[in-house]
C-alpha cells in the first residue's frame, strides 16, 4: 500500500488532491471561523443554528454547507448590458490564481525513501522560480476584480475595481521589495532554500521591518480590512455589486483562498516554513507545524478585521507610498549592507 502510494505519479496525484481538498476545506471552515469569531468579538453568538440532518448542531459548522447549497440554487442574473463572456469569466480569473499560487509552497520537509527524493509541495521546490512564480501568479488575482468590475458595466463596480487595482498595485511594490530582503539573505529564489536558510533563526527576527511591511501589504493584497476598498461591504459599494449566486461566492472563495496563500507565503518567507523546534524532526510534525503557523496567521486576519476600521482612500495611498515603500527600501538596504559587510 505504502509502496504503491509512493510511486512518483501516484504520490503527485495524492498531493494535488490532498492540497486542493485541504485548501478548500480551510476556505469553508474559514468563513465559519470568521463569522463566529466576529460574533464573539462583538458579544454576539453568530451562526449556530444550522444542524446536520436537522439534529446535530455542531456549533454551526454546517453553515458553510448550507451557504453553498443556497448559492447553488439562487437565480443567476447576468445584467442586460454586461459583457457576458467577461462577466462569467471574471470569478474564475479571480479564483484560479488564488489556488494556483499555493502549488509552489512547501508544506512539509522533503524526505528520501529507497533513494527516491520526495518533496511536499506540488511544484518541485528545486525549480529556480519559486518566489517569482508566487508573485507572478499572485498578482494575477487583481485581474479578476478589474475584469469583473468592468464587465458588470456599472459605474459603482468600476469605481470599486479602480480602487482595488490602485491599492493592490501600490502595495505589491512594497511587498515585493520587502521580499527582496529575504531573497538577498537566502541567495536564492527557491522556496526550499528560503526555508532551509531559516533553520535556527526565522527571518522575522533579523528582518523584522520587512516582515512588518509584508504583513501589512498582505492585508491590502487580499482585500481584507482595514484595506477592503475593493469590496467595502459595510459602507461603500464594491466591484461585485452586480454579482449574485455562485459567481458571487466564487469571489468570496477567491478572497479566502488568497488569504490562505498569502498566509502560507508569510509563513514560508518569514516564519521558517515547516520549521518548528522539536516538532519538525518527523514528516507529519513538519506538516503540522506548517499548518499551525498557517492557522495562526489566518486567525490574525480575522482578528484584525474585527478590530480596525477601514482606512480612507487617501490615507491608504499615503500609507502605501510614503510609509510602506520607504520602510521596505530601508529593510532591503540594511540587509544588503549587512551581507556586503559580512562578505
Amino acid at each position: 500500500m505504502m509502496a504503491k502510494l509512493l510511486a512518483p505519479e501516484v504520490f503527485m496525484i495524492v498531493k494535488v488532491v490532498a492540497v486542493f481538498i485541504i485548501v478548500l476545506t480551510m476556505v469553508a471552515v474559514g468563513t465559519w471561523v470568521e463569522r463566529r469569531g466576529a460574533a464573539f468579538i462583538q458579544d454576539r453568538v453568530g451562526p449556530n443554528r444550522v444542524a446536520l440532518f436537522g439534529k446535530f448542531r455542531i456549533m454551526g459548522l454546517a453553515q458553510p454547507v448550507a451557504d453553498g447549497i443556497k448559492f447553488f440554487f439562487k437565480e443567476d442574473v447576468i445584467p442586460a448590458n454586461a459583457d457576458k463572456i467577461l462577466f462569467v469569466l471574471a470569478p474564475l480569473i479571480a479564483f484560479i490564481p488564488a489556488t494556483m499560487t499555493f502549488a509552489a509552497i512547501p508544506f512539509g520537509r522533503s524526505f528520501d525513501i529507497n533513494g527516491v527524493h520526495y518533496f511536499l509541495s506540488i511544484l518541485p521546490p528545486a525549480t529556480n522560480i519559486g518566489v517569482l512564480y508566487v508573485f507572478a501568479i499572485g498578482s494575477m488575482g487583481v485581474y479578476g476584480i478589474i475584469v469583473g468590475a468592468w464587465a458588470s458595466n456599472n459605474k459603482w463596480s468600476i469605481l470599486g475595481g479602480m480602487r482595488a487595482s490602485a491599492q493592490i498595485i501600490s502595495y505589491e511594490l512594497a511587498m515585493t521589495m520587502a521580499v527582496v530582503g529575504v531573497v538577498l539573505s537566502t541567495g536564492s529564489l527557491r522556496l526550499d532554500r528560503v526555508i532551509s536558510a531559516q533553520t535556527g533563526l526565522w527571518n522575522v527576527v533579523p528582518q523584522f521591518l520587512g516582515a512588518l511591511v509584508f504583513f501589512v501589504s498582505m492585508f491590502a493584497e487580499t482585500n481584507r480590512l482595514p484595506f477592503d476598498f475593493a469590496e467595502g461591504e459595510s459602507e461603500i459599494i464594491g466591484y461585485h455589486v452586480e454579482y449574485g449566486s455562485m459567481k458571487f461566492s466564487m469571489f468570496a472563495l477567491a478572497e479566502y483562498a488568497n488569504m490562505i496563500t498569502a498566509a502560507a507565503l508569510f509563513v514560508t518567507l518569514y516564519l521558517g516554513g515547516w520549521h518548528f523546534p522539536w516538532l519538525d524532526q518527523w514528516i507529519w510534525g513538519s506538516i503540522l507545524a506548517f499548518l499551525l503557523k498557517l492557522v495562526s496567521i489566518l486567525w490574525i486576519f480575522v482578528w484584525v478585521r474585527w478590530t480596525l476600521p477601514r482606512f480612507r482612500y487617501d490615507q491608504l495611498m499615503r500609507l502605501g507610498w510614503k510609509v510602506m515603500i520607504p520602510l521596505s527600501l530601508v529593510n532591503m538596504i540594511v540587509v544588503a549592507l549587512f551581507l556586503a559587510y559580512r562578505g
Binding site: F40, D43, W303
Partner: peptide, 24 residues
C-alpha cells in the same frame, strides 16, 4: 492597534468561555 487587538481578543475569550445561558 495592538491595544485595540487586546480589547477585541478579551471580548472573544470572554464570550468563548461564557456558557450560552449567560450570554447577552
Amino acid at each position: 492597534i495592538l491595544v485595540g487587538m487586546g480589547i477585541t481578543i478579551k471580548h472573544f475569550f470572554k464570550n468563548l468561555f461564557t456558557p450560552p445561558s449567560k450570554r447577552y
